[in-house]
Nucleic acid binder design. Sequence first.
DNA 1: TAGATTTGGTTTATTAAATCAACCAATTAA
DNA 2: TTAATTGGTTGATTTAATAAACCAAATCTA
Lengths: 404, 404
Amino acid sequence: MKIKTGNQGFLRRQNLAGIFQYLYEHAPVSRIELARLTGLNKATVTNLIGDLLENKFVREVGTTIDKRAGRREVLLAINPQRGCFLSAELGVGFISIICTNFAAEVIWKKRQLVENLEPEFLLAETLRLLKKARRIGEKKSGMLQAVAVGIPGLIDQKSGTVLFAPNLKWRNVEIRAVLQKHFETPIFIENEATFAALGEKNFGAAKGFNNLLYISAGVGIGGGLIINGQLYNGASGYASEFGHMTLDPAGSRCACGNLGCWETLASQAALFREIHEAISAGKSTLLKEILKCDAQKLSVQMIVEAAQKSDPVALEALRKIGTFLGVGIDSLIKVFNPEAVVFGGILSVAGEFLLPAIKEELKKRWLLENASDPRLLLADSGSEAAAMGGIAKILQTVLANPPI
Amino acid sequence: MKIKTGNQGFLRRQNLAGIFQYLYEHAPVSRIELARLTGLNKATVTNLIGDLLENKFVREVGTTIDKRAGRREVLLAINPQRGCFLSAELGVGFISIICTNFAAEVIWKKRQLVENLEPEFLLAETLRLLKKARRIGEKKSGMLQAVAVGIPGLIDQKSGTVLFAPNLKWRNVEIRAVLQKHFETPIFIENEATFAALGEKNFGAAKGFNNLLYISAGVGIGGGLIINGQLYNGASGYASEFGHMTLDPAGSRCACGNLGCWETLASQAALFREIHEAISAGKSTLLKEILKCDAQKLSVQMIVEAAQKSDPVALEALRKIGTFLGVGIDSLIKVFNPEAVVFGGILSVAGEFLLPAIKEELKKRWLLENASDPRLLLADSGSEAAAMGGIAKILQTVLANPPI
DNA sequence: TAGATTTGGTTTATTAAATCAACCAATTAA
DNA sequence: TTAATTGGTTGATTTAATAAACCAAATCTA
């Protein structure tokens, strides 16, 4: 059996991947257009497309109706029936599942709330949902091709193990090994925020940006880095732990044990603390009565609603958190100089109030007056960024290795 | 005239570049070894090397003398006579020039002190030195191939312009345009610390690391990022402004206008301030008398010498600065998860005292007990990292496009 | 010391795959 | 109805990697 014979065939794979990519991004598109886009000879494109048609990755979907002279272009598109993809996000309190066809269109999804966060329970439940999704997906769009799972924690890429997920209270859970027993396909395990970054880049607010900083502000602050169009994981997969950057060496203690981590100043918990302190200090606020009944009930949504009614305590708390978010984002911009910053996570629900505060802080701190600072975008959370990021990850792999 | 005809020939260039790279890293090396290293067929290697020999990029330099049976390997190496490279570092108060042969061996270098920092003067002087170096280099090693210049400031890659160099007090100096009038070769303009990072990766302390964080602590704190073996410049070339990360929102004012930038807490200036404050507070120290004559005379070297004599003020100041360096480096590690961190710049002279303090702080703040934290390395400053980084940059370009 | 064996390198034939050029197909313009 | 235009295919050509046979030069061994 031959494993590797130098790199002949490498270029053809490369070209196939290129065409595939253009089909995903610009479909429907004609052969001649692909030749223009890729710089390949049109005969080469005909040849490559022939392969893809033969293997049912692509299909012809009609022609253009132009008024120009000449034969009409035959339009090509990814064949959605070629197979299906599964992606799951395991969150704190929910499991979110997406099944897409081969063209990355969502054909089934479900968001299930869960109480029990034990690995055994959560994995069993995830498995149950994935299997259900698989049945539906395979009936509609053909054989399962790959599975992706996003988890809020530190992941060891190689083994597909969750090393540490503080919010789920998991340590060393060999999730890929468990799933692999039930799925013969490739399985990708990743940090949830990292996937979300990829989702925003491919399907969300930051479509097309190649150097991207994604901030996920919620219980903690996580995120993801897209560098040269690729996810950057770090040497051992632990990059993007933004929340534990030190912002104030004399600050208050973080869950990680250190003092003054960014997320002690600018997370959901920090926002709630501001509100509670204001109430304790006797300031009048719409939120006071609501909390009187149930102090646990506070939510970002509630604070936003209060702020929309011009509640001063809510407004002030959001402004303060926004400012601290701005300080940290500014530091990251100086480190990375991204094209765009996408703000996501639970706190992005309050984007209409946080973004102006963040922007103001960024503007104040920007070093170059003449150069344009990076764009600040609100995450497109409706599209379920993390799960869609899993799909994007699968696509990248499928594209890089078209199984021909 | 044909500019681009698709990507035929692409693979061959790729393979040539690969062989070239191995020759730089492992020379002298035989054809059979190259075939093993690259995975190419030995006939292909013979063929490619034939091209390189014909164009004088490579030469045969003898054979191995093994005790094994079989014909001896013919060893190949880069031909140092194939041309020369120039690299300059414009510093605050000096111009450093290096001329290397085609094998990246230094064949001439000069470090010239300058008083006047005016762009006109400094550029004229640089030009004079570069021209001198060119004469010498071309006599020894053949035609000039490329020029690199490193500058402590923000660079616009595309135009080769220095947008802002606070320490030189430059703004919008179109340096490439000026140099291009005198050199018909490619000219690379880059931030000095960015080049230093590349120098450390290719010729210095971090040889072989592909995900690298280089910290240059001196007047300010700058640095460079190597990601996947490549320099990362950011979307518009302003990445790695580490010194202006905010470490303490209530801190003291930085030259950039913001409060509590990292470099206000952990630069050469911060170190000097600690010493001066200790003296003002009446603490006894070896440094006191020296400074009595000339308060301006303080240098990192002096503080190191005092510390080596166990001077408590010097030791305490270094420990404190080291701790703050550690806090910032820790944040960057959490963002990047590099394989290694290289500590360079003027403060690295005090490495023997700073590194233990930095390490202690990193250890205290590391999130995962089980996983290994990145290595902390002292820059190999003797090799003139910044100028050598320029050479590395040139090589990368030459390798990627072997001019055949 | 004369093969046998081993290893490095070259030559020639084969094959993969991109390009070029000629051609066919289908449409609009004249 | 024919010319012009544009999209796409076909077959010849070219590039370049591989495979296999072979040559070269060394050590091993009988």
